[in-house]
Design a protein around this nucleic acid. Structure first.
Lengths: 243, 243
DNA sequence: CCAATGCTTCGGGGAGGGCCGAAGTGTGCC
DNA sequence: GGCACACTTCGGCCCTCCCCGAAGCATTGG
C-alpha cells in the first residue's frame, strides 16, 4: 500500500507534550538553542536533549552547531504546515474567556516573529511590497542565516525603486551586520510567506518609530489608526485583509 | 499563551499505529463499521473499540448508529487535511523503487474512493459537470447517508439538461435504493470535493463499460486514450489538469 | 591551564497505555 | 423465542518511554 504513509511515527513525535512545546516554539521559523528549548518545554536539559535527538532523527528538525551552542530549527516549511493543520484541530480552540478569544484573534492578525512582523499583516505587507515592485521575487535562490530561514528556495531582491521609496520613509536599508537584507518565513497561521531578514526587522523598527504600530505584549502588536491609513496609502498594504 | 494550541493531544491520538491505520482507512471520506476498522488496523475488536472511543472523544471521528452497526467517519475535512499534511512529512515518502513513485503519482491522478472516482480526475469531473450546468450547486443543504458524507453544507442537484446529457451517455440516473443521487467527498489529496453518491458510482460504472477507464488495481484506475478524449469532449473535463 | 558553560549519555524509577480474552448489552433474522 | 452478530466494558499482563540526576565530553574565557 504505497499510498499509506507512516503517519503514526511522525504524529507520535508531535504527540508528546514536551516535544510539541519545542516544535511550537520553533514554529515561527526561528533557530533556538537546546537550553532555551528545554526551558520552553519545562523539562530538564537532559530530557530536552533526548527529545531533540528524536526530532532530528525523525527529520522534523535540523541542527547546526555554532561554538558550544547547537541551534535547532524546523527542517522544512512542511513541518510548520503540519503543526498548523494540527493546531486547527486542537481541543476546539480552548477559548475559555472572551479576552482569550480576542487575544488569539489579535495574534493571528498582527504579531511579531522574532523581530519582524508576521500574521495577516506581515503577509499583506510582503504582498504589498512585491505588488508595487519594491521587491522582486527570484526563485531558486540559496542562503544561510543561523537564526532565520536557511536555504529557502526563493529570494526577494530590493529593487532600486523600492530602495528609494523605503529610504524616503526612513527605513534603514543597509544591514550593519552580515545578516541578509531579505529573507522570508512561512507564516504558521497564514501558511504564506512574510518578510524576515534585516529588512523585515528594519521595517518593524521604523513602523514603531513612526507610531504606526505599538508593541502591545511580548508577541502582539497593535496598529494605530494613522498606521492603518499610512500602511494602506504609502505601502499599498491590503489593510482590509488584515482587520 | 493562547496561540499555543494543544497540538500534543491531537497528535498523540494520531501517533499510535492502530489509530493511524483507522484514520487512514477513513481518510477518503468513507464511513466504516467498527469490525472493518479493527481488521484494517489488525487489532482485536475490543482494542479497536477502545481506540475508536478515544478518537470520537477527541473529536477526530464521528459515529452514527445504524441497526447493529456503528459507522465511523472523519469528523471534518480538516482532519483529512491534517492527515495529509502529516503524510507529506512521513519517512520521506519511502519511495524505494521507481514503480512505487509512479504508483503514488498514479493514485493521486486517478483512483477510486469506495465506488466512485477520486483524485485529480474525480475533482476535475465534478468541476466539469458543474461548469457545463449538468449539476447545480445549492449551498446549505442537509442530508444523511450512512455510508457517504452526511450533513454536508452543500448539495449538487442534477439539472434537466444534465439528466438528458448523461442519460444519452447511458449513465444510470435513477438509484434503485435510497442512496442519494448526489453527494460529495473532500478529496484527501486535492483538498477539493469530488462527486460521490449514486451518480458518482454510476458514472464510474458507465466509464468502465464504455472502455474509458480500466481498473488497474484495488484503488488505481487507468484512463484509456479514447477515455481522455471522450472525457474532455463529452463531459468537458479539464484533462490537462489531470495528466 | 583551570573554571564555567552547553550539551550529551547513562542508569534507574515510575506511570501511562496498548493488547488480548472473557463476559455483558443491544439488534436483527429465522 | 432463540440464535447469531456487532460492539462495548472489564481485568490483568506487559512493554514502552518519559522523567530526572549524576557523570562525561566539548568549547570558551580568564
Amino acid at each position: 500500500m504505497p499510498g499509506d504513509a507512516d503517519i503514526a511515527s511522525v504524529a507520535a513525535l508531535m504527540g508528546e507534550p514536551a516535544r510539541a512545546a519545542v516544535l511550537m516554539a520553533l514554529a515561527d521559523g526561528r533557530a533556538l538553542a537546546a537550553t532555551t528549548l528545554a526551558a520552553e518545554a519545562k523539562v530538564a536539559p537532559s530530557t530536552a536533549s533526548g527529545h531533540l535527538g528524536r526530532l532530528v532523527e525523525g527529520g522534523l528538525v535540523t541542527v547546526e552547531s555554532s561554538g558550544r551552542h547547537r541551534y535547532f530549527r524546523l527542517a522544512a516549511p512542511e513541518v510548520a504546515a503540519a503543526l498548523e493543520a494540527l493546531a486547527h484541530l486542537a481541543p476546539h480552540q480552548q477559548v475559555r474567556s472572551l479576552s482569550q478569544a480576542t487575544h488569539a484573534e489579535a495574534i493571528r492578525r498582527a504579531r511579531t516573529c522574532y523581530d519582524h512582523l508576521a500574521g495577516r499583516l506581515g503577509v499583506a505587507l510582503l504582498d504589498g511590497l512585491v505588488a508595487t515592485g519594491a521587491l522582486h521575487v527570484q526563485e531558486a535562490g540559496e542562503g544561510s542565516d543561523p537564526v532565520l530561514g536557511a536555504g529557502r528556495a526563493r529570494t526577494y531582491l530590493l529593487t532600486a525603486d523600492g530602495r528609494s521609496r523605503l529610504g524616503a520613509l526612513g527605513v534603514a536599508l543597509d544591514p550593519p551586520t552580515r545578516r541578509p537584507l531579505t529573507r522570508y518565513c512561512i507564516d504558521w497561521s497564514e501558511q504564506r510567506p512574510h518578510l524576515a531578514g534585516w529588512l523585515g526587522a528594519a521595517l518593524l523598527t521604523r513602523f514603531v518609530e513612526l507610531g504606526w504600530v505599538l508593541r502591545a505584549s511580548r508577541r502582539v502588536v497593535k496598529i494605530t489608526e494613522s498606521g492603518w491609513v499610512a500602511l494602506a496609502e504609502r505601502l499599498r498594504v491590503d489593510v482590509d485583509a488584515c482587520r
